[in-house]
């Protein structure tokens, strides 16, 4: 464990807490894409298959349980909770996210570290996570006024993977093992997808104006 990875995990945890806070306290999911939340639930479900069979550390197991629990409960809130679901604008959240899953699965079957079920699932979860934010970014461009919590949520979600890239660089220079290039590339693509959001987020913060993404 290094400071970059810890910062990444804490940023990721914080993004999830900000979202849960928004949904649980003000009982609203306005501006949040259910499709992205569903994709993230699938990302964690396919990545943490070995949560009970492959013990890494208490921290690792607890964080996996938090990410699994929070992502599925957010999906539950947005689908089932009688108040929260009313604030979900489904006619705006129209990204065909299932169409994202098939190319990721096919790519995982072709490009992976080891052709085993678990390894293919893990690779699938990496590719899927790289594109999981797309429905949310599309929704942000459609909903004009982005509220602060939603903007912070997306910002933190993007920032965590950027910290992971620093972690991979650090590990490359300090450990005899190396992190596989599949992880590097999908992490890089994921972070680059946030580039324009980061730009507008920084502009809105610098000029102290409401965050707006060009349509």
């Amino acid at each position: 464990m290094n400071i970059f990875r810890l910062a990444g995990d804490m940023t990721h945890l914080f993004s999830v807490l900000v979202l849960l806070l928004k949904i649980h306290t003000i009982k609203s999911c306005a501006g949040i894409s259910l499709k992205t939340q569903e994709l993230y639930a699938i990302v964690f479900a396919t990545r943490y298959l070995d949560i009970f069979t492959n013990y890494i550390s208490l921290y690792n197991t607890i964080m996996k349980l938090i990410f699994l629990g929070s992502s599925f409960s957010i999906v539950w809130y947005m689908r089932r909770h009688k108040i929260v679901r009313r604030s979900y604008d489904k006619d705006q959240d129209t990204f065909r996210h299932y169409f994202l899953m098939l190319p990721c699965l096919i790519l995982a079957l072709i490009i992976n570290e080891k052709f085993t079920f678990r390894e293919v699932m893990w690779t699938f979860s990496l590719y899927l996570e790289a594109v999981a934010i797309l429905p949310q970014l599309v929704l942000l461009q459609r909903t004009r006024n982005i509220d602060n919590l939603t903007g912070q949520y997306v910002f933190l979600l993007g920032a965590y993977r950027a910290f992971y890239i620093l972690n991979w660089i650090y590990r490359y220079f300090t450990e005899e093992h190396f992190v596989h290039w599949i992880t590097w590339i999908s992490g890089l693509v994921q972070t680059l997808l946030y580039a324009d959001f980061f730009y507008y987020y920084f502009q809105s913060w610098k000029n102290n104006v409401k965050l707006e993404l060009p349509a």
């Binding site: 990875r5 990721h12 890494i56 893990w122 992971y164 992190v179």
Partner: peptide
């Protein structure tokens, strides 16, 4: 450098 034994990251 050799391959990591397992996925130790989240």
């Amino acid at each position: 450098k050799e391959q990591p034994l397992e996925h130790d990251e989240l």
